[in-house]
Design a protein around this nucleic acid. Structure first.
Lengths: 307, 307
DNA sequence: CACACTTACGATATTCGTAAGGATT
DNA sequence: AATCCTTACGAATATCGTAAGTGTG
């Protein structure tokens, strides 16, 4: 007997239980796909390893010893537990079970993500999904805290813990009423919007920040400032002014009275990044969703105007 | 990945948990007494075996994957359970734990067994003892039913399930008062007792059966018939008669007014047998007590008269 | 003498350690 | 340059199957 350096394998336990059940070396050996002498040696090695004789055997009879009976209980339970552990693990690997948590900008979460998640869920119905629609800072926090596997946010990571890669570039569009002077254009420029009454989003939104950077505040004729894009849509529809929003939010403005026109403003792009922890790799489930997101990523130019 | 023929060993799990804890191949390898490359190969083989990547590793960092974290829980529990199973088993093997059940004739159980058990218990205090003091038939039943590991009884086994070996031969002694005519003899014969008033045990006792066989009933002057030997002792002491009992019961008659004299009756022997199941081997604890019983067995001639 | 476990032994696979390679800080 | 994981490869070890051995009913 080695000094407590016993090395018992799952196969050993299976051999043991097989012999305990069949009480016959020859048949148990066949069950384990081993020659009978090899099987015999295996059992002997196991007995040495645990330090106790497990079977009383002569040429006619094979019986568990009292100690063997005790060990059989343990061995059976161990095999069962191991099997369960392995099943769990393989369920994860085959994506039959699992969990993915993502943090996504509200615009993407509402407009683009649902179809992607639907596709994902249909392919892997056993995987639990956790979506947080949050602004950039909270997205980053969630990834950093391990509460999200990855995030789609509009700013790069601030710390070295996260990696970021460009996911898509969200270009801006004019939104106006169908009867507006610019409604028929294929493109519009910032200059053409300078004197238009403008419906703004709150200063805290990333959209507003981009716009303030491009159209310096003094130039635009601000009519009002709102928090929700759907409210902005209502205001524009009522003829109170125009607005400018990134392509990914245009789904808020799909309405027969409204028209969207791509904005000609080369530098004016809201970049969206895919953020994830630098050291903590993605789980299989998370990686799968990650890959699907990349595969289904919105076209870089943004969707055409619905007009 | 093999088709569900995974063979994982305890050593693999230990390596896995070591690496999960240390997050460093070199140190974990040392912990497992392996060269670092061998350890690396072992981990890779384990990952292949379970079919899932368990660690994310580059040259600078080793981290569990999400799947690895799940498996760590299982592995830890499995190792713990295995350790417990092994400890239990080795406790049995080293006789630090266990249980022995014996069925023993009342005479042996009261007179001879206590000292043997005391010795046994001192040597192996962790082993639980179950003693049934029962007559021959019940002793046999208990062994056959698996309720006793072995028995000391005064008849051979009736069935082929049990093996019996002669344990000791219990010879008969006269018991009389110190002032009795035969009290001074070194030996007495059956003839010398023929006319003595005789205190009998009940017909069901094995002692009585031996006596009835040797001294045919008509010849003895039966004074009374009792169930308990200690009552017989009292009657003899009161001068109501003599009796004849086997050596192993003489402890009932140790009294200043009583004398015991070996009986000269060659064929008259109560044989006591050690009985055990033919196929079911003895547990380590049982075998140990068995061996001690044989070692401490009463001398074949029976003890000298205390006179 | 037929069946079932054990021993013997040469062949095959695995596993090991050393040394070299490659990547990251 | 130092650290740490991986690859390469010959050597040591373990395991396997065939065949002979042994004991029991």
């Amino acid at each position: 007997m080695q000094i407590n350096q016993s090395n018992v394998s799952v196969r050993d336990l299976r051999a043991f239980t097989a012999l305990a059940e069949l009480r016959n070396f020859t048949r148990a050996a066949k069950e384990c796909n081993l020659s009978q002498p090899a099987f015999s040696a295996l059992i002997r090695a196991l007995e040495d390893s645990v330090g106790v004789r497990l079977f009383d055997r002569d040429t006619r009879k094979v019986e568990l010893t009292a100690e063997g009976r005790l060990f059989l209980e343990s061995a059976t339970r161990l095999l069962q537990d191991f099997g369960l552990a392995l099943t769990d693990l393989r369920d994860l690997a085959t994506r039959r079970r699992g969990r993915v948590a993502v943090a996504v900008l509200p615009a993407l979460a509402a407009g683009w993500l649902p179809d992607v998640l639907a596709e994902f869920h249909q392919a892997y119905p056993g995987i639990e999904l956790d979506v947080a629609d949050a602004l950039a800072d909270e997205c980053i926090d969630r990834v950093r805290a391990g509460k999200a596997d990855f995030a789609l946010a509009s700013s790069r990571s601030t710390s070295a813990e996260l990696t970021s890669e460009l996911f898509c570039a969200d270009r801006f569009h004019l939104v106006c009423r169908r009867d507006h002077a610019l409604a028929g254009r294929r493109r519009v420029t910032l200059q053409q919007l300078a004197e238009e009454p403008f419906i703004h989003l709150a200063r805290s939104s990333s959209v507003r920040q981009h716009i303030d950077q491009a159209i310096w505040p003094g130039r635009a004729r601000k009519v009002m400032e709102l928090d929700q894009l759907s409210t902005v849509a209502g205001m524009v529809r009522a003829g109170l002014g125009i607005t400018v929003v990134p392509a990914l939010t245009l789904f808020h403005f799909r309405h027969p009275e409204l028209v969207t026109v791509p904005l000609e403003a080369p530098g004016m792009v809201r970049e969206i990044f895919l953020l994830r922890s630098r050291d903590r790799g993605l789980s299989i489930a998370a990686r799968t969703l990650y890959e699907l997101c990349v595969l289904r990523k919105p076209a870089m130019r943004g969707p055409r105007s619905p007009a």
